[in-house]
């Protein structure tokens, strides 16, 4: 080899700069973080989904999840309702579910797959006090059960109600959620199991940036077919999983009131005040104390204490 070649040196330098920039971005300019350039994503075309639930089955198999009560070809699950008419949601037994929605305008039902949307700036990650979450450069938001204390802040913070908790376990309850098939597939450049199995090609795997372009192209090509919006392009700072639809998103259980900026930006004001309080309060209150004290006098506190009768 004989020393470092110029190219390697440059690579190293670039990496160092990139790291610095990335770190400083994380700590100072987080609201502007728009995802890793090579981040992958999935574009869900709700007009193509037929509600066959094969993605649910593939996910179950891929992750070795428990066998459900009803088989995956049983479509009566679409009529299941939980607490106060809530539709099915991901939990400790399933990382993804498909729900059926009847459009209010009439017409064919729409099926929507729910899983972790893998936000660019995940609220779960930024709210976790033990750093159990990682946003990988491939775009996945992965969770480390080894350090999780079980405060369930991430569940409170997730705007999509995605993380579930294995409440049934007494000794090792953990967060359960879709991990984009990160460890077995995504790191090797493979699409997640649900995408691979989809017979309708309703799920499109690719670079997030390209998917946005494709989504826009589809909407432009068939403006009568699609609502002019890619859900996830900008919601809470952008997500890796995105949706296009023929029906208004709010009718399909999507929260269309979500803020555009990442959740963490709501907390920035408070976090920024912390060091100021730490720095200013001691002088401020010691100053009050000095002002309140009588001139030249002793504090006098407690001098009588213990005198008794």
């Amino acid at each position: 080899m004989g020393g470092i070649s110029r190219r390697r040196f440059l690579e190293f330098g670039a990496a160092a700069v990139a790291t610095t920039v990335a770190t400083s971005k994380r700590s100072h300019a987080t609201p502007n973080f728009e995802g890793y350039p090579e981040g992958m994503g999935v574009l869900v075309d709700l007009t193509k989904c037929i509600g066959c639930r094969s993605c649910e089955a593939a996910c179950n198999k891929e992750h070795g999840l428990p066998k459900p009560e009803k088989p995956f070809d049983d479509l009566s699950v679409f009529d299941e309702r939980g607490h106060s008419g809530q539709m099915r949601r991901p939990d400790e037994t399933r990382y993804t579910v498909v729900n059926r929605y009847e459009p209010t305008q009439g017409g064919a039902p729409v099926y929507r797959k729910i899983q972790c949307n893998h936000c660019n700036e995940p609220a779960c990650l930024t709210s976790c006090f033990v750093n159990a979450y990682t946003k990988t450069k491939e775009g996945a938001v992965v969770y480390n059960p080894e350090v999780c204390v079980g405060c369930r802040m991430c569940m409170t913070a997730c705007p999509f109600y995605v993380p579930g908790y294995s409440y049934s376990s007494a000794t090792n309850p953990v967060i359960v959620k879709c991990n984009f098939c990160y460890d077995k597939r995504l790191v090797n450049g493979l699409p997640p199991a649900c995408v691979e199995i989809c017979p309708q090609e309703a799920l499109l795997f690719g670079h997030r940036e390209e998917l946005i372009a494709i989504g826009k192209a589809r909407i432009k090509a068939e403006p009568d077919r699609y609502i002019d919006h890619i859900y996830g392009e900008e919601e809470v700072g952008g997500t890796s999983w995105m949706y296009i639809s023929s029906e208004p998103f709010e009718e399909l259980g999507f929260d269309t009131t979500l803020q555009k900026k990442p959740i963490i930006s709501n907390v920035m004001g408070f976090l920024g005040m912390v060091p100021m309080v730490l720095a200013i309060w001691p002088a401020l209150f010691t100053g009050f104390h000095l002002l309140a004290k009588k001139k030249g006098g002793e504090d006098g506190h407690d001098s009588e204490r213990g005198e008794g009768e």
């Binding site: 994380r26 006090f129 033990v130 350090v147 907390v267 408070f270």
Partner: peptide, 12 residues
């Protein structure tokens, strides 16, 4: 074991 200093709960 593991620090998440950017989280409000960490401060709490």
């Amino acid at each position: 074991v593991s620090w998440g200093p950017a989280a409000v709960l960490f401060l709490v």
